[in-house]
Computed example of a mutant assay.
Amino acid sequence: MEKLHNKSDTTKGILFLICSAFFFALMAVFVKLSGDISFVQKAFFRNAVAFLIAAGGTFGDIRAKGKSVIIIPKGALLFLILRAIAGSVGIFGNFYAIDRIVLADATILNKMAPFFTLIFSFIIIGEKIKPIPLICVIVAFLGSILIVKPSFNFTQMLPTGAAFMGGVGAGLAYASVRKLSYLKCNGKIIILFFSAFSMTLSVPYMIVNFNPMSFFQILMLVFAGICAAGGQFSVTAAYYHAPPNKISIYDYTQILFSMIFGFFLFGQIPDFLSLTGYFVIIAMAVLNFIYTKKHCESENVSVSVGD
């Protein structure tokens, strides 16, 4: 019965992660369609919508279940702050890149997050990294260099560097979510805290450099916020149901969604080096997934025999 429950949780985690990938790919489209606005301002409105949706869900839970849903468990505050800081780095880096490089490039660099999730899960939670996954992380990092294309042209390299750092931030954020799940912290509280924190970071810049927006731009950012909320709730639910080493490979479906959107909506075609980088990173993700799945199955067999 326990194994059946674990398989069910893993399946739910996979489905939630694919939903998250679709929502985040669509969010990037709306962010790009919103036009010539500061990436900080875009991030603010994206988080504002997500905050309102999370707040509505939280207050709905309070009415139904009482005040206990807003209690922050002991030890959770540190990881709520860490998740908020890391998630903000992830959003700012990703939004800065979306407006300046090919949509699929920004996505694949952001999708370095599952690899960094493994590393940070080891640091924060103590989830072990086997030799094969570690090799996959190293090779994937080398593959990302093909997309970043390091050069002495800082202006040209900055957007891809920002996208990469966004992936690092997202990886730390997801590992923090996993830790918060162990601490039994309510998922809506995690999203609410993160959205409020990221909005607060944006306020000083907004006061000094606010760009007036047209109705169309506001509408696009509202849609981006709705998609972001859908992505946040989905990814939070995914890592609540299953650990990163069982489901993170499915996060790469966002690359497929982004390439389709990028080609049909913006006429974007990644160059050869970027495509090679995609192949390397995805290949390592697949290898890591296959290895982890076989390793987990062999461990389950050993446990069953021992029992």
Rank of each mutant, 00 (worst) to 15 (best):
residue 303 V to Y: 10
residue 191 I to E: 00
residue 10 T to Q: 14
residue 91 I to R: 00
residue 188 K to A: 09
residue 260 I to C: 09
residue 200 T to V: 15
residue 211 N to T: 15
residue 94 N to T: 15
residue 296 C to V: 10
residue 34 S to L: 11
residue 235 V to P: 04
residue 211 N to K: 12
residue 235 V to I: 15
residue 290 I to P: 09
residue 20 S to I: 02
residue 210 F to N: 01
residue 94 N to R: 00
residue 83 R to D: 09
residue 233 F to H: 07
residue 197 F to D: 00
residue 92 F to G: 02
residue 203 V to T: 12
residue 214 S to F: 01
residue 238 A to Q: 08
residue 254 Q to C: 10
residue 113 A to F: 12
residue 182 Y to P: 01
residue 205 Y to H: 15
residue 45 F to G: 00
residue 224 A to M: 07
residue 179 K to T: 08
residue 56 G to S: 10
residue 32 K to M: 12
residue 292 T to D: 15
residue 245 N to V: 03
residue 147 I to Y: 05
residue 13 G to C: 08
residue 104 A to M: 11
residue 89 V to Y: 04
residue 121 S to V: 10
residue 181 S to I: 03
residue 127 E to N: 11
residue 79 F to I: 07
residue 6 N to A: 13
residue 36 D to Q: 14
residue 68 S to R: 12
residue 90 G to H: 08
residue 199 M to A: 05
residue 207 I to S: 03
residue 274 S to F: 04
residue 32 K to Y: 09
residue 172 L to H: 02
residue 122 F to E: 05
residue 146 L to W: 06
residue 13 G to L: 08
residue 153 N to F: 13
residue 129 I to P: 00
residue 151 S to F: 03
residue 243 P to K: 09
residue 230 G to R: 10
residue 52 L to Y: 10
residue 135 I to L: 15
residue 192 L to E: 06
residue 200 T to G: 06
residue 279 F to Q: 00
residue 17 L to H: 07
residue 278 Y to L: 13
residue 239 Y to D: 00
residue 131 P to S: 11
residue 58 T to R: 09
residue 227 C to Y: 04
residue 229 A to T: 11
residue 230 G to P: 01
residue 189 I to L: 15
residue 1 M to K: 08
residue 268 Q to C: 07
residue 11 T to A: 15
residue 114 P to N: 13
residue 104 A to H: 03
residue 289 F to D: 07
residue 41 Q to S: 03
residue 63 R to V: 14
residue 92 F to A: 11
residue 46 R to C: 08
residue 15 L to W: 11
residue 150 P to V: 02
residue 132 I to R: 03
residue 71 I to C: 10
residue 121 S to W: 11
residue 280 V to R: 02
residue 110 N to W: 00
residue 26 L to H: 00
residue 83 R to P: 00
residue 242 A to N: 05
residue 281 I to T: 05
residue 128 K to A: 14
residue 175 A to S: 15
residue 15 L to R: 01
residue 66 G to S: 06
residue 51 F to R: 08
residue 62 I to F: 04
residue 144 S to T: 06
residue 117 T to F: 08
residue 242 A to H: 04
residue 107 T to S: 13
residue 179 K to V: 06
residue 221 L to N: 02
residue 77 L to K: 15
residue 152 F to I: 13
residue 231 G to L: 05
residue 185 C to E: 11
residue 204 P to E: 10
residue 213 M to Y: 01
residue 180 L to K: 02
residue 88 S to M: 13
residue 63 R to D: 09
residue 207 I to Q: 05
residue 162 A to N: 03
residue 59 F to V: 15
residue 258 S to P: 09
residue 103 L to W: 02
residue 60 G to F: 13
residue 141 F to C: 10
residue 105 D to E: 15
residue 137 V to A: 14
residue 191 I to M: 10
residue 194 F to C: 06
residue 114 P to R: 14
residue 265 L to T: 08
residue 105 D to K: 10
residue 265 L to G: 04
residue 116 F to P: 00
residue 232 Q to R: 00
residue 48 A to P: 01
residue 33 L to N: 02
residue 218 I to R: 07
residue 117 T to Q: 11
residue 235 V to M: 14
residue 117 T to E: 05
residue 55 A to G: 12
residue 212 P to D: 01
residue 76 A to P: 06
residue 185 C to H: 02
residue 112 M to D: 03
residue 298 S to T: 15
residue 241 H to F: 12
residue 265 L to H: 05
